[in-house]
Simulated assay, not measured.
Amino acid sequence: MTAPIPFFDGHNDFLLRLLKTPASREETWLGTAGRGHLDLARMKAAGFAGGLFAIFVPPASDGPPPDFKALMADPPYALPMPPEMAHPQAQPDALAMAGLLHWMERAAPDDFRVCRTVAEIRAAMAQGVIAGVMHMEGAEAIGPDLDALYLFHDMGLRSLGPVWSRPTIFGHGVPMAFPGSPDTGLGLTGSGLDLVRLCDELGIVIDLSHLNEKGFDDVAGVSSAPLVATHSNAHALCDSPRNLTDRQLHMIRERGGMVGFNFATFYLNVDGTADTGTGWDVMLRHLDYLIAQVGEDHVGLGSDFDGCVLPDLIGDVTGVQRLFDAMAAHGYDAQLIAKLARENWLACLDRCMN
């Protein structure tokens, strides 16, 4: 049997599933029931060599949480933005998820390692150990004085999105809407500009994936680092505000940045639907377009595993090798597939992380 192509993934929401699932964390991480998109056994079998693991605090709710997948399944839609969440409200779940990432290492020390540098990522991958990098999707857990950023950085935080799709004290996210433009309002606040500067100082990647267009431009104007969108697709092919315009893609190319190709059907299909019958042709059209706009050295994977509706052809983490087979059949050679699978991410993180 041919060994799987090792890959690095720019975004997943496994930590939230680990926090919220009614099953035990041991069963969710170490079990073989095959629930969700990720667990240790499937990741090892699928060639998942490393990735950014998101800390994401979901919207507060008095009742059951909103089912965004169902609400977004039948475009057009324009969901109300969840309200701003204060950092004392967000910090407990954020700290719990940071702790869970470290617990994952303690529970499987021979198979999983929390990494803080690209040298550590490469060393883990060379030893067949999955490299986990802490990411934060929405910076609500960081207060206005920014002191908590130092603590999360010490815990391993190396990538941060200032916003999810709700306002924060740092800026404004794009709405959950289709169709729509990312040009939806105000950019970063003064605190947001300070957050970007401190992230640059600490070597923390700023993730642009959920920022609106003015916020994107503000990051580009303040940060000296490469511009990175961990899990976004091409707005020209799917008119979602979560996707990137040609102008944004060209800015990412010019700054030596990175786009993580998102597997979410909402951001792939031209009509914005959650159609799980999405074919390889749709996925490869986005990849072709991203490569044409950004360059083959600046595109990788940003699956959104455990946070989205996937095409049935992918299904879960074990479907990534089928995507690589489809890339090869489409004409991508082995060198390009290796770049898209892992090398571009590692090179970009090397340019970003201290």
Rank of each mutant, 00 (worst) to 15 (best):
residue 1 M to E: 07
residue 4 P to E: 07
residue 8 F to L: 11
residue 8 F to K: 09
residue 22 P to A: 04
residue 36 G to R: 10
residue 40 L to A: 06
residue 40 L to K: 06
residue 45 A to E: 09
residue 45 A to M: 00
residue 57 V to T: 12
residue 69 K to W: 14
residue 70 A to Q: 13
residue 75 P to E: 05
residue 79 L to R: 01
residue 84 E to R: 12
residue 85 M to H: 00
residue 93 D to M: 09
residue 94 A to G: 08
residue 99 G to W: 02
residue 119 A to H: 04
residue 122 R to L: 10
residue 124 A to T: 14
residue 127 Q to D: 14
residue 127 Q to N: 09
residue 129 V to D: 00
residue 135 H to F: 12
residue 138 G to P: 10
residue 141 A to C: 03
residue 141 A to W: 02
residue 145 D to T: 15
residue 149 L to M: 12
residue 152 F to T: 13
residue 152 F to K: 09
residue 166 R to Q: 01
residue 167 P to R: 11
residue 170 F to Y: 15
residue 175 P to Q: 08
residue 176 M to T: 13
residue 177 A to I: 05
residue 178 F to G: 06
residue 179 P to F: 05
residue 189 T to S: 13
residue 190 G to L: 01
residue 192 G to R: 08
residue 206 I to Y: 01
residue 207 D to A: 05
residue 215 G to L: 11
residue 216 F to N: 03
residue 217 D to H: 11
residue 226 P to M: 03
residue 228 V to N: 03
residue 233 N to D: 11
residue 233 N to E: 07
residue 239 D to G: 01
residue 242 R to N: 07
residue 244 L to Y: 08
residue 245 T to Y: 07
residue 249 L to K: 00
residue 249 L to A: 03
residue 266 F to A: 13
residue 269 N to G: 05
residue 271 D to M: 08
residue 273 T to E: 04
residue 275 D to G: 11
residue 278 T to Q: 02
residue 281 D to G: 10
residue 288 D to H: 15
residue 292 A to I: 11
residue 293 Q to I: 05
residue 296 E to K: 04
residue 296 E to D: 15
residue 303 S to Q: 06
residue 307 G to W: 03
residue 340 L to T: 13
residue 341 A to P: 13
residue 343 E to L: 06
residue 345 W to L: 01
residue 347 A to K: 13
residue 351 R to S: 12
